[in-house]
Design a protein around this nucleic acid. Sequence first.
RNA 1: AAUCUGUCGUGUGCUGUCGCUCCCGGAUGAACAUCCGGGGGAGGAAAGUCGGGACAACACAGAGCGCCAUGCUUCCUAACGGGAAGGUGCUUCGAUCAUCGAAGUAACAGAGAGUGCCACAGAAAACAACCGCCACGCCUUUGGUGUGGUAAGGGUGAAAACGUGAGGUAAGAGCUCACGCUGUGUGGUGGUGACAUCACAGAGGGGUAAACCUCAUGGGUUGCAAGGCCAUGUAUACCGGGGCUGCCGGCUUUUGCCGGCAUAAGGGUUGCUCGCCCAAUCCCGGAGGGUAGGCUGCAAGAGGCACGGAGUGAUCCGUGACCCCAGAUAAAUGACAGCACCGGAGGGGAAACCCAAUGGAACAGAAUCCUGCUUACAGCGACAGACCGCCG
Length: 133
Amino acid sequence: MIRHTLPKTQRLRSYQTIRQLYQSGATGFIYPFRYSYLTEPTEADKGTQPRAEIMVAISKKKIPLAIHRNRRRRQIKEAYRRNKHIVFDALHNHKLRLSFIITYIGDETVTWQVLEKKIVLLLHDIVNRLESG
RNA sequence: AAUCUGUCGUGUGCUGUCGCUCCCGGAUGAACAUCCGGGGGAGGAAAGUCGGGACAACACAGAGCGCCAUGCUUCCUAACGGGAAGGUGCUUCGAUCAUCGAAGUAACAGAGAGUGCCACAGAAAACAACCGCCACGCCUUUGGUGUGGUAAGGGUGAAAACGUGAGGUAAGAGCUCACGCUGUGUGGUGGUGACAUCACAGAGGGGUAAACCUCAUGGGUUGCAAGGCCAUGUAUACCGGGGCUGCCGGCUUUUGCCGGCAUAAGGGUUGCUCGCCCAAUCCCGGAGGGUAGGCUGCAAGAGGCACGGAGUGAUCCGUGACCCCAGAUAAAUGACAGCACCGGAGGGGAAACCCAAUGGAACAGAAUCCUGCUUACAGCGACAGACCGCCG
């Protein structure tokens, strides 16, 4: 049973990884999100553990005010935090490390309930793609 | 009382579940970390990035030119293009014999150097003659025409060459005079000063400087992505071109090396020029490569509040074992419920009153800090003003 936390170590913070993701990450689309992700296998001799790193990006064109972008980013992070067990179970089964970016492309009218449902769909989508190879 | 406008103040709180970040203490652990406990964690504008400063790096012999900013006075302030108090002009309102008071407003130095511009209309917008008036000449003589004088009258315009009266003249004109108006100069008085007021002299040829400009004052450049340290790395690397000079002395068989002086393509002097300074481990171009990780700067000060004092005021001084004091870094300070708050569809009740659904809850998110300005803003409170009504 994992705890539903989201500390610094599970957030995507490396410039190089982000660059790699935008250049060569596998992408998908579930409205109102677009996502791209990369995986690498864990290596037991180096002591790396399965884990996921996430980043949330929001377009300034869609949501112009900083305070509204902040709120939307917090809601997305919250939705991921509450449902991240979906993807974590798969990662442990396949011994993978995952980095991914969720880009919000909706507008300000999407409600919290819809947002959480769509995140769950998105996570299941990623898991399906991992399982199928 | 209600509504509206303006100014000032304030600008959500509590509970639950699950989370984030920083600091302190403890535990596990080689370490990264993880866990437990405690504490701190967005704004009045954090915004616009507009002024001014602190702080930092680089630069700085000097002179000239240029560029930018500011522009009534005194004061406040670390400083300012900010603020306070005042002066002057203009506008509005009110009272009044003159004159005075209130509110608002002002890029409010110079149009006695020069240049430019002044739409339309008008003859003309700055060397004024269209009509008119006057003199003289000519002709086909109730008139027409030419030359000259004339800014009193007409007409145009936002603005037409000081106003009124008298003298004067061919007709006229500040041409002369009186009174007045507006500048200038000198002197007196009051005021720290802007300025006010009085006297004398002399002048009257528009406006426009957020047009160029003139005058006065100020201004080195870049900004925390500043800068410092650690780690990493590749620097006197590679290719092409330029330069690699002259004299003297020393060493040396020579090539060459070292030192001094001179020259200077080039570089620096952070707008330009002169001047000054630098110098072969140099300068220009090409191609290619690397880094972009961590720590620091980085949070207690031009801080708030209370009381007392000085000042018209901005503000300053003193006292206080009074209070506060975010530091994130693909960027924490939250998400979701419920209640409180506003509102009240509707329901209950004889009534007072009670219960209440949907809904509403502004503007807005630190990024080195402070200070000011500007802009955005629901609700509540205070104080002014306007309007309506006068039974509230």
